[in-house]
Design a binder for these strands. Structure first.
Length: 637
RNA sequence: GCCAACGUAGCUCAGUUGGUAGAGCAGCUGAUUCGUAAUCAGCAGGUCAGGGGUUCGAGUCCCCUCGUUGGCUCCA
């Protein structure tokens, strides 16, 4: 048979040889590294015999798909270990995921895995690796497959098979006494999976639906090399140090107290930071032709019925009564924005009308969903609503995308983009949804941004484009969104007068860049580990004296800095300079000015940067120029 | 909301088989005037999340509530 390798070369092999054999023929080391293979682009076992001419790619741990096979085998080993230690446990599913794998188990009533159990399971997995069990693949016809799993008393597996399409191949993988329903591919042998770490236990609904039984999920990870596992665990530990909840307390920025779950406090430092972000937002939006508004936090029931929130969003809303009438606290700003639009008659010449609002919204999120500033029950959306003619849609969306890129680049964020389509619970006709969805898709394509489709995740009034930013440990959070909406304009019967003198229905875009100021601050805090870019840092310069003889000069310098528009403080305490520097470093103050007898005598300041250390001395005026330039450029890092 | 773990001083954490709460940092007081990540000493600080129960006795054991964390579900 002829085998074409990724470098384009074609080699002849004997029919029936496996990918491992072929790897061996190239080098013994490659054979050892080969975990799985891709045959004509399809993932297969490296130990499966190959027949006929094909294109072959050998997958190692460096390939995402190689790691996937490696960790998927690890998840089977976990299941095997669980079964050995507790035969009563039933298997659900156990896939490889980014950075690891998990397996869901249905355990006997009242039993749940403890940390000690995880240790024991880890040991058993190591034993399974030491046993060096060979993996075998076999296929069964549908009925036999069902009988096979019934005989093994695995009801979840039976259900999975029953839900597979009639004509699908039903494959199993067997290692020692253990066999599992699985499409593969897998490693040839359990002996390869030596560096395993079981991370945590969590509840997870069967098939992801809260209507189903909650199963026990064990998360783990596995690496080919021990050093890589250790490095991964170390990185996780390091990442915890930049958790925004921890930094928020340490830097005295913000906190969430037991007295108000999900309702954050912003302390003076946090407020300074926040105000900088809001100023930036205002500058940018003014420059981009937006007008700012502010709409009420409480509006009456009729409004929310009209907007559809009463029907579609009630579970997430807070209510109140005023003079025996029902009111709701706004969970979104759009109805207020629409009422603003409705206050007068718009001409097509006025459009697009871009209305921005830093609006505080309240949403009753499930208690278990709360997470620091990332997920709260009251937050400020940096909202904007654009009212426009249908012809303006594409240009407006492109304008918004440009705005997003400007914002995220300013902070040095990487982001991923998703297009979310119609959810089950939604309003409007199929045509409207199709029209709106394709408008978004076209704009995205025109922007050249790579994006993924997220089916069924749109808002109830329209499809959306989401921008996701990463936190310290790689979880991603939706920040920016662009939502196209044909519904609200209908519901509120808003219009503009066209060139023909007739009334027309405008189209509406809902969009946020920060997403919520709170979440954005959370992400930004983790992104820079609390060392905020100078332009947003709560305190920009700390003036440190070496002895009391410098007090007067330091105070004077501090005043000069403040007069130059900088956020500066002087530390005149009777402490050693090393101690003062340590404190300022821990607070991640961008610049420290050390003032002692020498500086006073020479008429200079000794500058220390939080990252670069001692930067030498310079006249105060030079330092002010330097920091002003840095602030003006909004430099990060 | 669901599953699990956890909740001790402002912060980080000790507290053995139930026998009346302890350290470091921060704070306060005093001494020290000192060149780029911690000067020394003293003092003060807690209804052990809240409420019930078991017990001669509960921070430790049991139950309930609240909150936090990790997930699931949901979402900016």
């Amino acid at each position: 048979m002829n085998i074409k390798l990724p470098d384009g070369s074609i080699h002849q092999y004997q029919d029936g040889m496996t990918a491992l054999d072929i790897a061996e023929s190239i080098s013994p080391r490659l054979r050892k590294a080969t975990l799985a293979a891709e045959l004509d682009g399809k993932r297969v076992d490296a130990f499966a015999p190959i027949k006929g001419d094909h294109e072959l790619k050998l997958l190692t741990f460096d390939d995402e798909n190689g790691r996937w096979a490696f960790r998927h085998t690890a998840s089977h080993m976990l299941a095997q270990a669980v079964k050995r230690l507790d035969p009563e446990v039933k298997f659900a599913i156990g896939p490889a995921i980014e950075n690891g794998f998990y397996y869901d188990f249905d355990t006997p009533e009242g039993f749940s895995f403890s940390p000690e159990d995880l240790d024991a399971l880890e040991k058993e997995m190591n034993k399974i690796a030491a046993e060096s069990l060979q993996l075998h693949r076999f296929e069964l016809p549908r009925e036999e497959a069902i009988e096979y799993m019934k005989a093994r008393n695995e009801p979840y597996k039976v259900e999975l098979i029953q839900d597979l399409p009639e004509d699908s191949i039903i494959s199993f993988y067997e290692q020692g006494e253990f066999a599992d329903l699985c499409a593969g591919p897998h490693l040839e042998n359990t002996g390869k999976v030596k560096n395993v770490k079981l991370m945590s236990v969590a509840g997870a609904y069967w098939r992801g639906s809260e209507k189903n039984k909650m199963l026990q999920r064990i998360y783990g990870t596995a690496f080919e090399k021990k050093a890589d596992l250790e490095q991964y665990l170390f990185r996780l530990e390091e990442a915890k140090k930049r958790d925004h909840r921890k930094l928020g307390r340490e830097l005295d920025l913000f906190d969430i107290l037991d007295e108000g779950p999900g309702f954050p406090f912003f302390y003076p430092n946090g407020m300074t930071l926040r105000n900088q972000l809001e100023s930036f937002w205002r500058e940018q939006h003014q420059a981009r032709g937006y007008k700012e508004i502010r709409t009420p936090m409480i509006l009456n029931r009729d409004l929310w019925i009209r907007s559809g929130h009463w029907d579609h969003y009630q579970n997430n809303m807070y209510f109140t009564k005023i003079d025996d009438m029902d009111y709701a606290i706004k969970p979104m700003n759009c109805p207020g924005s629409i009422l603003t639009y409705k206050r007068k008659i718009y001409s097509y010449r006025d459009l697009p009308e871009r209305l921005g609002e830093l609006g505080l919204v309240h949403r009753h999120e499930l208690s278990g969903a709360l997470h620091g500033l990332m997920r709260v029950r009251c937050f400020t959306q940096d909202d904007a609503h654009i009212f426009m003619t249908p012809e303006q849609i594409k240009a407006e969306i492109l304008g918004v995308i440009d705005k997003f890129q400007c914002f995220y680049d300013t902070f040095g964020f990487k982001y991923t983009v998703e297009l979310s389509t119609r959810p089950e619970k939604s309003m409007g006709s199929d045509e409207q949804w199709e029209h709106a969805t394709s408008a978004l898709e076209e704009a995205l394509q025109a922007s050249g941004l790579p994006f993924a489709i997220n089916p069924g995740d749109g808002a109830f009034y329209g499809p959306k484009i989401d921008f996701h930013l990463e936190d310290a440990i790689g979880r991603t959070w939706q920040c920016g969104t662009i939502q196209l909406d044909f519904q609200m304009p209908e519901r509120f019967d808003i219009s503009y007068v066209g060139p023909d003198g007739e009334k027309h229905r405008p189209v509406m875009i809902h969009t946020v860049v920060f997403g919520s100021i709170e979440r954005f601050i959370g992400i930004l805090t983790e992104h820079c580990a609390g060392a905020f870019p100078t332009w947003v840092a709560p305190l920009q310069v700390k003036v440190l004296t070496i002895t009391g003889r410098a007090d007067e000069k330091a105070a004077e310098i501090c005043e000069t800095l403040k007069a130059a528009g900088l956020r500066a403080e002087a530390d005149l305490r009777n402490e050693k300079i090393g101690f003062k520097i340590r404190e300022a470093q821990m607070l991640k103050v961008p610049y420290m000015l050390v003032i002692g007898d020498k500086e006073i005598e020479q008429g200079v300041v000794a500058v220390r940067g939080r990252k670069k250390g001692d930067l030498g001395t310079m006249p105060l005026a030079d330092f002010i120029t330097l920091i002003h330039e840095e602030i003006a450029s909004k430099a990060h890092d």
